[in-house]
Design a protein around this nucleic acid. Structure first.
Length: 426
RNA sequence: GGAGAGGUGCUGGAGUGGUUGAACAGGUCGGUCUCGAAAACCGAUGUACUCGUAAGGGUACCGGGGGUUCGAAUCCCUCCCUCUCCGCCA
């Protein structure tokens, strides 16, 4: 949610953001401004009438206390029409406010000036590349064949027990998952300075609204309808909402949290391409990095989270590149975003394994997370940021594919061996 | 799941229909005193929205929502949460 003040003062900038983000028509802005004005006028009127009623009530009280019963009774009669009038204006104001809020929720965040303007993913810029793509002097197998060959992952039984996209990890496959989770968490805690959190795996409606999954992306989450809880699509949701409706002290900032959770995504509408093997799952593991920071420092923190994620990739010796996402490929809530993609040797393509974003006050405003600067100043909204550090399945895909040898075995990178307890699969 | 108790400001804790946005205490901030500090004393100290160039007004908020009333933190309904006991259970 944007600050209404920005929209009032700078509607053209907001419209430009909508156009650059491909986020619908700019009409919402004009509609909102008209409604906002109307709402404020109505509100002023309402408050005036309420003030008169309050005054009358007070004088009735005075009359009663001084024993002037008839006068009090007469005054009481007079308030009935006033009350009806209040109710009328109140209903009107409320319905306007609801609509105003609705429109406000439809307006996307404004991209940072550094962000290249572009319609879609073709406008994204590769700004950094690291590592060397592996070459094979034998027919390299895609990870799903390697996983089957070494009995690491069982997709079929996953389909039987739950459905497509819910695999079983077996033996060294399961151990590899556990190793990666611990490796990423240790990295975040020991080198990144994050505090580890184990959040609930289900969230309520208010939390979904706080981080922006609700109301529009409701269909992307699994819902426990009896309780109206949602399975977490990412740890970002519970971890960001950890501080919802709180006022922090400036000295507490920045706050850095990391969390491992499974992530549940319905991925409605994305069937067809790229769903082979581990490329797209309904349940997958991820370590998420979340920061709550002072507004003045948030872009430094963006680079810092990005560096945390890249550090993990480099330690795993996975070739990757960094994309600066263009306006058209930015999410609704983001001002600036980097995607990190690893090279998957056998599929010969880049796979997204991390997305690092700044939301400035967009989430903080929705989730009502503020801080108070020293000296009794007014509370202001923090900036929130997050990034994957990292998402497991595509890392596993790349590790298997890039690490495969002519004899069919798979070598693990040095950094992972203490965690896995083995250096070779097969 | 059953029975009961309770949810008030940064904190503790009053308040059961009429100057209560909320006593009192603590905390925090500012000041006086002091070489400095402590103590003591004085003062300030919620949030959101809105009107206003400003000074300064106004409205709403005592877990959430709704209702009764001229008037509600106080009465009623409902939901959520916490605690105690019982049951069930990893």
């Amino acid at each position: 949610m944007l600050d209404i003040q920005i929209i009032r003062e700078n509607p053209e900038r907001v419209k430009e953001a909508i156009v650059h983000k491909n986020a619908g028509t700019t009409e919402v802005v004009d509609k909102l401004l008209v409604l906002d004005l109307e709402w404020r006028e109505t509100l002023t009127k309402l408050q005036e009438v309420q003030a008169t009623l309050n005054m009358r009530s007070k004088s009735i009280g005075d009359l009663m206390r001084s024993g002037k019963k008839e006068a009090a009774e007469a005054a009481r009669q007079e308030t009935t029409t006033l009350k009806a009038h209040i109710k009328e204006i109140e209903d009107w104001a409320r319905s306007m406010e609801v609509e105003r809020h609705q429109l406000l929720l439809e307006i996307p965040n404004i991209p940072h000036p550094d962000v290249p303007i572009g319609r879609d993913e073709s406008g994204n810029q590769v700004v950094f590349e690291w590592g060397e793509k592996p070459t094979f002097d034998f027919p390299a197998l895609p990870h799903w064949e390697l996983a089957a060959k070494h009995n690491l992952i069982d997709f079929e039984r996953g389909s039987k027990v739950t459905g497509a996209g819910f695999p079983f990890y077996i033996g060294k496959g399961a151990r590899l998952q556990r190793a990666l989770i611990n490796f990423f968490l240790d990295l975040a805690v020991d080198e990144g300075g994050y505090t580890e959190i184990q959040p609930p795996l289900m969230i309520n409606e208010a939390s979904g609204i706080g981080t922006g999954q609700l109301p529009d992306k409701e269909g992307q989450m699994y819902e426990a309808t009896l309780d109206r809880f949602f399975m977490v699509p990412t740890a970002e949701v519970p971890v960001t909402n950890f501080l919802r409706d709180e006022i922090l002290d400036e000295s507490q900032l920045p706050l850095l949290y990391c969390a491992y959770t499974p992530c549940f995504r319905r991925e409605a509408g994305s069937y067809g391409k790229d769903v082979r093997g581990l490329n797209r799952l309904h349940q997958f593991d991820k370590v998420e990095l979340v920061r709550f920071v002072h507004p003045e420092t948030s872009y430094e923190h963006l680079e810092s989270i990005r560096a945390n994620a890249e550090n993990a990739l480099q330690k795993l010796r996975l070739p990757y590149h960094r994309l600066l996402m263009c306006t058209g490929d930015l999410g609704f809530t983001q001002t600036k975003k980097y995607d990190l993609e690893v090279w998957s040797g056998a599929q010969a393509r880049w796979l997204e394994v991390s997305s690092v974003s700044n939301f400035e006050t967009f989430q903080a405003r929705r989730a009502n997370i503020r801080f108070r600067a020293s000296g009794n100043k007014k509370p202001q909204f923090v900036h929130t940021l997050n990034g994957s550090g990292l998402a497991l399945p595509r890392i596993v895909a790349a590790l298997l594919e890039n690490g495969q040898q002519a004899n069919g075995s798979i070598h693990l990178p040095e950094a992972l061996i203490p965690y896995a307890g083995f250096d070779t699969i097969g």
